[in-house]
Simulated scan of single mutants.
Amino acid sequence: MAPVTSDLPQVQDSVSTTLTLLFQTLTNVSLYDSAGRPSRDSLASDLSSLDDSLLKVHRLANALPPSSTPGIPLPLMEYVENGRNPDIYTREFVELVRRLNHLTRGKMHAFRDFRDVLAREMGAAMPEIKEDAMRVVEETGALGRCCWVRRGE
């Protein structure tokens, strides 16, 4: 058998077709009349089409190079398998990232303030290292001599 070459849009179209066939099969199963010949033939035809469509999806998906498939996080897959909405997962994830960013920003400001206070107090306690402390503060991102200006120095 020749290798199947495919791209992501083909796989997506194939999955969409499979879902349509699955819905159609579901409808025919719910309307199935065990005594009626037409519904039995229709259901058999739908199942055959569904089988062919699933096989096509499988072949196309396996032919995709690993780099072209989007990585879906395992926690998201488990979330969806448990019957939950992936949009809610995304919203919760964004909120978690926002909270962690806020926390990290607070820590950065706290360390910046600690750096300034430490340098100021070291300069006040040991005047001989004041210039070195100022240089360290300036090289670590302080704007000008802000930590020295606060005390009027």
Rank of each mutant, 00 (worst) to 15 (best):
S49P: 08
P38R: 08
S6W: 04
L60T: 07
L8E: 00
L43V: 00
S45V: 06
S67I: 09
H58Y: 14
Q12A: 05
T69Y: 02
R59F: 09
D33L: 08
P9T: 13
P73S: 11
H58M: 10
R59E: 15
D7S: 14
V29H: 05
S68E: 14
V11P: 01
D46V: 06
L74C: 06
S34Y: 06
S30V: 11
S67H: 09
S45Y: 06
L31I: 07
P38S: 11
K56S: 13
L19V: 03
T25L: 13
L47Q: 01
P73C: 07
T69C: 12
D7M: 11
S53D: 05
K56C: 08
L60I: 11
L60C: 06
L31H: 04
T17S: 11
L43F: 00
R40T: 15
S68V: 14
L19G: 00
I72M: 01
S39P: 12
S39E: 01
D13I: 08
S34Q: 09
D51N: 07
P65Q: 13
D46L: 04
T5L: 08
D7V: 12
R59T: 13
L31S: 15
R40E: 05
R59K: 09
A63G: 09
T5K: 10
T17G: 08
T20F: 15
A35C: 10
L50K: 03
T69H: 06
Q12R: 05
L54T: 11
P73V: 14
H58Q: 14
L21V: 01
S39I: 02
L19H: 06
S67W: 07
V15E: 02
V57K: 01
T20H: 13
Q12P: 07
I72Y: 00
D46H: 14
L22N: 04
S34H: 09
R37S: 13
S16F: 12
P9E: 10
T18F: 01
P38D: 02
S14A: 14
T5H: 10
Q12W: 03
T20G: 09
P65Y: 12
T27R: 06
T5D: 15
L26P: 03
V11L: 02
V29W: 00
D52T: 10
Q12E: 14
L31M: 10
Q10F: 08
G36V: 09
A35Y: 10
D41S: 13
Y32V: 04
S14D: 08
D52K: 12
P73T: 14
T18E: 00
T69Q: 07
S67T: 08
L64M: 00
P38T: 13
F23A: 04
R59H: 13
L21A: 00
T18M: 02
S49Y: 01
S48T: 06
S68Q: 12
T25H: 02
D51L: 04
L43K: 01
T20I: 11
T25A: 08
L22H: 03
S6T: 06
K56L: 15
S49T: 11
L31A: 15
N62H: 13
S42K: 09
F23M: 11
L31T: 13
